[in-house]
Each structure stands twice: as structure tokens, then as C-alpha cells.
Write a protein that binds this DNA or RNA. Structure first.
Lengths: 223, 223
DNA sequence: TGTACATCAGTGAACGCGCGTTCACTGATGTAC
DNA sequence: TGTACATCAGTGAACGCGCGTTCACTGATGTAC
């Protein structure tokens, strides 16, 4: 967009012998910036990334075997950040499983709307493009998802939820669907006439939690 | 895929004077078939569609001003079908708003998983690509969404729901998010270890409805 | 019934583009002697 | 301290591809006389 920004300021000094990783990091950062600025995965081409870094396209291949691996590395950072955000959300309130669920839901939606392009790639992309390490089975087995399952299980163990519910894992899948639905509609349909996304997330969690809780649970008072 | 299907059987007879619309229809049908077979929007190129019909690429432009308009026409059919499916779902049971909501949810998710590629384009695409007629505001104003709002309003008017809920429109947005979440995760994460999608949809609707209903409502008996 | 003509559905060739990727290379950096 | 050499980060040119779109055209269809 800026006319004179075809190359970054000044000539890029070539990396010293053992410092190949410096360019590697710059490439990831450039891909990342491109993704955020353009808001489009398509705009992150090998050439565009190389231009951004101030290097020619082939030198990308010295650091990444191909384009997909580059994109995956970019996402890896955000999957790690996602897991950390979710873990932090429960950590703050893990004394009360119901409060923890509310916190998880809010944090999830916030994560998505703060950085829609990454959310898109992480959770809305075609699954064939997803690398093995982020395959569905792996995602289900480690990180944020088990955190959600455990939180639900804590609620069950504490006797807060109704008796006729399926196992925690099955509820977790649906809770995920709920927050993903709020998040992904916010991302794809930003102009849809509706209340602010945080309010939608809160309402969604509140109603759903009420559906999970025993009839005599007093947790609603915080609504 | 089939090796000898590069051109359709026999030479395509050229349309007669007033029959330009015949090719138009064939083009839409070809684009549609391509979308379903390949499962990828990217595979629907002007050239691929033309090949499929047995015609050269430029002749597409006699019927559609550009590629986007073609894709939109393809979707138009499915938006109409979607509205019809939703209307039919409520029509069957509209005596009971709660049963109608259950039916809407199930029908919504079924619509998505039966035809994931169209669902993807209709509800998961970048909104910049969406033509004016399917812009968010329009979608909110006509068709299935108002049906959902009206059904919720009927529940409110019948005194079935709790008193402290926001207006029907706001609840509708969240209900939509719920079923969209179930549907879109089913589409993008088919391998995620979980119960069958119909069960997930049912659980999602059941828990959410329970969260909406007055505490003394007996509708849960059908769960 | 026969001929000249207008219409217009579809063609063939070409355009310019950006893409991912490859290849043989250059030349600065560091090391061994 | 000085020189020959190996390393290897990054280059420049090119590949083949499929894409959307354009243009001047062809030739069958239908119509007017």
C-alpha cells in the first residue's frame, strides 16, 4: 500500500554463519504481519513474505521446506498462545467450575475476535490443510480442549450439574460448538445486526450454563 | 476423475436463437456439480466449468458478467432452499414454539452436513465476497432468520421462557450461533472424536432450551 | 418457394498475472595453516 | 599476521502452471422480401 515500501528500510545485512535462524524468525514475523494487515490467507504468498523481509523468494526455501510448513509454523505460535490463554482463564477462578466455564467461554470468544485471521486459519480452515500436529485427534487430546473437559468434569463431580447429562467429553464438544459459533459468526458476519460480541458470548454462556445446572443451583445470581 | 469424461458425451448442439438460457442453466448445474464433487470452491474455475459443460471458457461470459456472479447464482438456489427447509421445519410443528425451535435446530444442522460445500460458501465465507443480495443486513431481514425470531417470540408470548431474557432478536442471534457452531465444526473438523452430529445437535438444543425455559416448564419430558 | 441478410451463440487465440518451486551461482564469513 | 580454502546464506533467472478475462471471428439460425 505505501508506495515506497517495496523493500524495507536499508539493505538487509546478510546473516552470519550460525545465524540462519535469524532470517527464519524474520520470515515468520513477516508472514504473521502480512496475515494481520491484509486479513487474508491468500495474501501470504512466498513472494510477498520474501519481499516483506527484503530477501528473494528462493531463500525462504532454505528455512522452510514449502509454503505449508511456513504457514503452520506461524500457526504453531498461536496454538500455543491459545492454549495458554485458556489455561489462564481457568487458573484465575478454578475454585468454582461454573465460574471457570464462564471465563473459558469469554476468553475463547475474545481470542477469536481479537485476531480473526488466525482464528480463521486455526479453527475455520479446511481440515485437509491442517498439519498432522494440529489434526483433530491431537487437538482433542492436548491443550485447551482437555482443560474444558476437566472443568466440566469438576462441575459434575461437585454435583452442580443435572443428573441426566451425557459424559463430560460430549458436553465439551457442544460447549466448544457454542463458543465457536459465537466466535465464527462474529468473524464472518461482522455486519450482522446484533448486540456487541461480548454480550452475545455472555448470553450464550449464561443460557447454556443454566441448561446444565441443577434446578436448585444458585449460580445464576451472578448473571 | 473419470479418464474419458474430459468432454460430455456427444457434441453439444448449439442453442437456438431464444434459448440462450439453456446454456446458462447448464453452466450453473456444472458449477454446482463441480462444487459438490471436488468439495472445494477453488476447483470451480471458469475454465473447469466450461470444460464440464463442453463449451469454451469465453462463452461463460455471454451469460455471467464475471466469475463472482456465477458463484452467487449457484448460491442463490441454495439460499432459497435453505429458507424453504427452515420454513418447512417450523410449519410441521408450529403449534408448539419449543418443539418448533428443536425442529429448526435439527433441520439447520442437517442442512449443513448434507451439503458441506454449499454451507461453507453460504455461511463460512469471507463476507467481502458475499454479493449485496446476501449481505448480512439482508439476511437478517428476510427468510430463515426472521422465522427463528418469530418462533422465539411466540415462545415468549406463550409465557414459556424465563422473564429475564433479552429481546427475541438477541436470543435468535445466539441460537443461530449455537447451531452454526455445531454445523460448522462438523464441517471443518469431521474427524474430531465426538458423538454423531445429530446427537450433538440434539444435545446442544436440549441444553440451550432448558436454559431458556421457565423452571416449571414441563417441556423437558420430550428430551 | 428461394435468396439475401441480420442476428447472435459460441470459438480460438491470446493477454498479463501471480503463483510455488528449481537450479546453478556468487560472494561474504569464518577457519586452518 | 597473512593467505588459501571451505562453508553456506542469499541471489537471479527461469520453469511451468492455471487463472480471469478480452477480442475479433465464425457460422448456424431465423427472418424479410
Amino acid at each position: 500500500m505505501t508506495p515506497d515500501a517495496s523493500a524495507p528500510a536499508g539493505a538487509r545485512p546478510r546473516a552470519r554463519r550460525g545465524e540462519g535462524d535469524r532470517l527464519r524468525d524474520e520470515i515468520i514475523a513477516a508472514a504473521e504481519a502480512l496475515l494481520l494487515e491484509t486479513g487474508s490467507e491468500d495474501a501470504v504468498s512466498i513472494r510477498a513474505v520474501a519481499d516483506r523481509v527484503g530477501v528473494t523468494a528462493p531463500s525462504i526455501y532454505r528455512h522452510f521446506t514449502d509454503k505449508q510448513h511456513l504457514l503452520f509454523e506461524v500457526c504453531a505460535i498461536h496454538f500455543a498462545r491459545f492454549d495458554a490463554v485458556m489455561a489462564a482463564a481457568v487458573a484465575d477462578v478454578d475454585a468454582d467450575p461454573v465460574a471457570a466455564l464462564r471465563a473459558l467461554g469469554q476468553a475463547y470468544v475474545r481470542f477469536a475476535v481479537e485476531d480473526p485471521e488466525h482464528y480463521r486459519i486455526m479453527f475455520m480452515g479446511r481440515s485437509e490443510l491442517t498439519p498432522e500436529q494440529y489434526a483433530d485427534e491431537v487437538f482433542a487430546a492436548g491443550g485447551a480442549f482437555p482443560t474444558l473437559v476437566a472443568t466440566l468434569q469438576a462441575g459434575i463431580d461437585a454435583g452442580r450439574f443435572r443428573d441426566d447429562l451425557p459424559p463430560a467429553h460430549d458436553i465439551a464438544v457442544v460447549v466448544w460448538a457454542l463458543v465457536h459459533g459465537v466466535a465464527s459468526l462474529a468473524v464472518t458476519k461482522p455486519a450482522f445486526p446484533a448486540a456487541p460480541v461480548a454480550d452475545r458470548a455472555a448470553l450464550a454462556c449464561e443460557v447454556f450454563l443454566r441448561g446444565l445446572l441443577r434446578r436448585d443451583d444458585a449460580a445464576d445470581s451472578s448473571a
